[in-house]
Amino acid sequence: MALTSTTTDATQIITVHSDRIDAAMAIQFKEDMRTQADGGAARVVLDLTGVEFIDSSGLGAIVASMKQLGNDRRLDLAGLHPFVEKVFRLTRMDTVFKLYPTLDDALATTAG
């Protein structure tokens, strides 16, 4: 799984370059997230613009990635396709993560 990372102001943006986060790639996703987010900014925005499908393993991998950041860092999600957003809402994970329609919307909002 390919992830890229950039930092803007006090926000680290990690972009997922895959159309799926599922059981076949959940473990690799967690490892790649750990590598990309290690020592980064206090706020991390995961850009899911290219992700069209996520299953429970993928959802679990994103939750695990949030936990890896620790209590002093925050993981927000941006660019969720309708199906992916539906998974987050049905599982009530929209109460755990801040969801933004686009990356620009996420960057226009300060963490907090």
Rank of each mutant, 00 (worst) to 15 (best):
L3F: 07
L3S: 09
T4I: 09
T4Q: 01
T6M: 10
T6Q: 15
T7Q: 15
T8G: 14
T8I: 02
A10S: 13
A10M: 03
Q12W: 00
V16P: 03
H17Q: 14
D19L: 09
R20S: 11
A23Y: 03
A24I: 05
A24H: 14
A24F: 15
A26W: 00
M33Y: 04
T35I: 13
Q36I: 13
Q36V: 13
D38C: 07
A41M: 01
A42R: 07
V44C: 15
V45M: 03
T49Y: 02
G50Q: 11
F53M: 08
I54K: 13
D55M: 05
D55C: 10
G58I: 05
A61W: 00
S65V: 13
S65G: 09
S65C: 05
Q68S: 12
G70S: 06
D72Q: 14
D72H: 11
L77S: 01
A78L: 06
L80K: 00
P82W: 13
E85F: 00
K86A: 08
K86D: 13
R89P: 14
R89T: 08
R89Y: 04
R92E: 09
R92P: 00
M93G: 09
D94L: 07
T95L: 07
V96Q: 04
V96A: 12
F97Y: 05
L103C: 01
D104V: 12
D105I: 05
A108D: 03
T110S: 14
G112N: 11
